[in-house]
């Protein structure tokens, strides 16, 4: 799934957040969005993920102009092609880890095993085996971040939008996340990462520098 942004500009609340930015998201490649805090990394990520509308410029998904896309079309894109890893984890605090990964309850017991067999390996990969039934609000920051990542894994999406996926993690877990994102690219997914993590940036295929606009 190729997403191309050309000369896009975004203004929020009367302030220009992005101006004349060009970006290309290509299947099988990792793109790092870098820049100082407040430079618009999250905003660009949201633009590419069709969450935030653009002010000017063009944004195409598989060559199709998205400006006129209605809600239903964008929703279908989110449903079938995208997975988000949010800076604030994007978790439903009062639900369990398993629910947050699958966004549905575990089915009744006779079918539970098959569903469980799908998410257990994923929880294992993010280092949270046997925490499936725990309430998310009780987890630590780093654990929450990995639950957010587990959801992206579970969805096996065509494009992954990850916002600071390694921000609250220790060395080992950072490696774990980096390995997962690069692995997804190898699988053929397009991966966009907004990050300050130098190690992660170094291992990405492309990098896009955003400049601070407050200067």
């Amino acid at each position: 799934m190729e997403i191309v942004a050309s000369n896009i500009g975004v203004a929020i609340a009367g302030r220009t957040v992005l101006e004349d930015v060009n970006a290309r998201v290509i299947p099988g490649q990792t793109l790092a969005l870098v820049g100082p805090s407040g430079s618009g990394k999250t905003t660009l990520l949201n633009v590419l993920g069709l969450l935030v509308p653009i002010g000017h410029g063009t944004l195409t998904v598989e060559g199709q102009e998205t400006r006129r896309w209605r809600d239903a079309r964008r929703r279908a894109f989110w449903q079938h092609h995208a997975a988000f890893v949010f800076q604030d984890y994007g978790l439903i605090e009062e639900e369990s880890v398993a629910y947050n990964v699958m966004l549905s309850r575990l089915p009744p017991f006779w079918r539970r095993r098959r569903e469980a067999s799908k998410i257990l390996p994923i929880l294992e990969r993010v280092g949270l085996p046997d925490r499936a039934q725990e309430r998310v609000s009780a987890l630590s920051g780093g654990e929450k971040q990995r639950v957010g990542l587990a959801r992206a894994m579970f969805r096996a999406a065509d494009v992954i939008f990850a916002d600071e996926p390694t921000a609250s993690l220790d060395r080992d877990n950072r490696d774990l996340v980096t390995a997962f994102l690069l692995g997804e690219a190898d699988r053929g997914a397009a991966v966009v990462i907004a990050t300050h993590d130098e190690d992660l940036i170094a291992r990405c295929d492309e990098r896009l520098e955003l400049r601070s606009r407050t200067a």
Binding site: A76, W78, Q79, H80, A82, G90, N100, L103
Partner: peptide, 13 residues
């Protein structure tokens, strides 16, 4: 609102 956000960005109708 958080639940709505998560579900909608996962493409729920």
């Amino acid at each position: 609102s958080r639940r709505l956000f998560v579900q909608r960005t996962s493409g729920w109708t």
